[in-house]
Every structure is written in C-alpha cells, then in structure tokens.
C-alpha cells in the first residue's frame, strides 16, 4: 500500500505500524504518530495501517 512516511510517499509491504518500522529500518529509539495522533510503542504491533496514512517517526534531536 501507499503511505506517507515523514512527509515522503512510500510504497510499503507492511500492514502494521510495527512492521513498517522494521521494513524501513527504523529500529532505534523513536516515537510514532499516525494521521497526527500519537501511537505509543506498545500499540504499534496492533496498529493496522491504511492506504494513504500519514506516518511520522521522530527521534531525539538537538534542541534549545
């Protein structure tokens, strides 16, 4: 299916959020949101993705 990952359109095999992270190699310490709503790490495996979903995967970064 086609999703938008961190602002970029992607064709992916994964059907859940957890599988998407594995497929895209995002295995580090990250936080996730789908369609602008936070999805805790404990719910990623059960979170089914739908065509057109907007997924944000965020990581620690410098900040003031």
């Amino acid at each position: 299916m086609k999703i938008v990952l961190n602002g970029e359109s992607r064709e992916v095999e994964a059907e859940t959020l957890a599988a998407l992270l594995l497929e895209c190699g995002l295995t580090g310490r990250v936080a996730t949101a789908v369609n602008e709503s936070f999805v805790p790490s404990s719910l990623r495996a059960g979170h089914q993705l739908n065509d057109g979903d907007r997924v944000e995967v965020l990581a620690p970064m410098q900040g003031g």
Partner: peptide
C-alpha cells in the same frame, strides 16, 4: 534541552551522547 525531529539516522548517536552527559533531560 532536547527536541524531537523526523528520524534521519542521526538521532540515535545524538541520544547516546546526551545520555552519557549524565544530566537531566528537558525535551
């Protein structure tokens, strides 16, 4: 103080460096 941004690969190295500082973290 730290922030969250889209994962580009640099986030994990940054996080391990910050953790090693042994200071309190304020996101």
């Amino acid at each position: 103080t730290v922030s969250l941004r889209r994962e580009s690969g640099a986030g994990q190295t940054f996080w391990s460096m910050i953790r090693d500082l042994g200071v309190l973290i304020l996101p």
